[in-house]
C-alpha cells in the first residue's frame, strides 16, 4: 500500500519534471528574445494615462479591453453593453474578429496592426492605445487574454498594460513578448474615423473602412477615406470610396469632386467615369454626364455591362 503510494508520488514528480522540462526547452528554443525597444525617433517613455480603466469581471477581458479602447476613442459604452456583442458564453471568451465587428457597429475604425513590436511602439508614440491578445499560459495550456497596452519604458525595457483587474500592470518586455508571441502578435487600434494609424498600410486600411461602409456608417467612412486620400493621394480605392461615401450622405458636389479627381489620376479607370457620370446626371448636367458615361463604356473592363446600363439610363432621362 505504502509502496504503491510512493510509486504514485514518484510518477507524479517525474511527470511534473517532464512537463517543466518540456516547457523550458520549448521556450529556450525561441530565445534569445529580441530586445529592440529602440526605434529612431521613438521617445524613451510613453504612458497614455488618459486611457480609462474597466476592471475585468469573470472571463470578460474582451469586453473590458474593448470598452477601454472605445471610450478612449470617444464612444460611450461599457463592458456590460459589449458583452452581448462579443462574448461567447460556451467558450468563456471573445474571438478577435468579433472585437472588430463590435468596433465598427459603433462607427469606429478598428485596424489590426502588422505583427511585431515596432507597430505597437509607433502607435503608442502616436498616442493610440493598443488592444493586444496574449497567451499568458503555455502552448499546451493556453490562457488567452486581452489587455490594453498604454505605454512603454525603453530604459527599463517595460510595457505598461491595463490588464484584468490591474489598472497598471507593468511587465518586462521579455515576458510580454513571450506571452504576446504565443498569440501571434495580435494587436488592434480603435480610432475615431479620420484618425490614421501611423503604421497603416493602404490595402488593409481600405478593407477596414469598407466594413464601416457595409454597416451604413457613411459619415464615418467619408472621414476615414478622406484621411486615406491625404496619406495615399494616388489610391483609386480611397478616392472612389470617398466619392461613394459622400454621395451616400447626399453631398453630390463633394462626390463629383472626388470622382473627377479619380478620372484625372486614373484616366483609364472606367469606374471613375461611370460614377462621375451618374453624379453629374443626378445634378442635371446631362451633357457632361453623357460624355463621362461614353468614356466609361469606351474604356470597358469587367464592369462594362454596368457602364452600358448607366449610359442607357442617362440617355433615356436626358431625352425626356
Amino acid at each position: 500500500m505504502l509502496t504503491s503510494r510512493r510509486a504514485e508520488l514518484g510518477l507524479r514528480r517525474a511527470f511534473l519534471l517532464a512537463l517543466t522540462g518540456a516547457v523550458l526547452t520549448g521556450c529556450s528554443a525561441t530565445l534569445p528574445v529580441e530586445q529592440r525597444m529602440s526605434l529612431p525617433g521613438l521617445p524613451e517613455r510613453v504612458e497614455l494615462t488618459e486611457v480609462p480603466f474597466y476592471s475585468q469581471d469573470d472571463h470578460q477581458c474582451g469586453p473590458a479591453s474593448l470598452a477601454m479602447a472605445l471610450n478612449w476613442a470617444g464612444a460611450r459604452t461599457t463592458p456590460e453593453r459589449l458583452v452581448p456583442q462579443i462574448y461567447l458564453p460556451a467558450r468563456h471568451g471573445s474571438l478577435q474578429p468579433e472585437l472588430l465587428v463590435a468596433t465598427r457597429r459603433l462607427g469606429y475604425l478598428g485596424y489590426v496592426l502588422e505583427p511585431g513590436l515596432d507597430s505597437v511602439l509607433l502607435e503608442l508614440a502616436a498616442g493610440h492605445p493598443v488592444v493586444v491578445m496574449q497567451n499568458r499560459g503555455l502552448g499546451w495550456y493556453p490562457v488567452w487574454h486581452y489587455a490594453v497596452a498604454v505605454g512603454f519604458d525603453a530604459g527599463h525595457q517595460e510595457v505598461i498594460l491595463r490588464s484584468g483587474r490591474q489598472k497598471r500592470h507593468v511587465v518586462s518586455l521579455r515576458v510580454f513578448e513571450r506571452t504576446w508571441r504565443r498569440a501571434e502578435y495580435w494587436a488592434l487600434v480603435v480610432l475615431p474615423p479620420g484618425e490614421m494609424p501611423p503604421t497603416a498600410r493602404e490595402s488593409p486600411y481600405i478593407q477596414a473602412v469598407l466594413g464601416l461602409e457595409q454597416l451604413g456608417h457613411w459619415r464615418a467612412a467619408a472621414l476615414a477615406y478622406r484621411a486615406a486620400v491625404a496619406r495615399w493621394p494616388q489610391s483609386l480605392s480611397a478616392r472612389m470610396g470617398l466619392g461613394n461615401s459622400l454621395y451616400a450622405t447626399g453631398d453630390l458636389a463633394g462626390a463629383q469632386q472626388a470622382y473627377r479627381q479619380a478620372t484625372l489620376d486614373h484616366p483609364t479607370a472606367g469606374v471613375a467615369f461611370n460614377n462621375l457620370a451618374q453624379t453629374l446626371a443626378d445634378q442635371g448636367h446631362w451633357q457632361e454626364a453623357e460624355q463621362a458615361a461614353q468614356r466609361a463604356v469606351s474604356l470597358g473592363g469587367p464592369l462594362l455591362a454596368s457602364y452600358k446600363e448607366t449610359l442607357r439610363a442617362i440617355l433615356a432621362r436626358s431625352s425626356q
Binding site: 507524479r12 511527470f15 511534473l16 512537463l19 517543466t20 516547457v23 475585468q56 469573470d58 472571463h59 470578460q60 477581458c61 474582451g62 461567447l88 460556451a90 467558450r91 468563456h92 471568451g93 471573445s94 474571438l95 478577435q96 491578445m133 497567451n135 499568458r136 499560459g137 503555455l138 495550456y141 493556453p142 490562457v143 488567452w144 487574454h145 486581452y146 484584468g164 498569440a183
Partner: peptide, 22 residues
Amino acid sequence: KLDQLPAGGGVVEAVLIVFLVL
C-alpha cells in the same frame, strides 16, 4: 471555427498540477 479559434477570457480554470506548473 468558432469553437477552435482562441477565445480571450483571461481566467485560468486549472487543476492543481497545472497551477503549480504555471
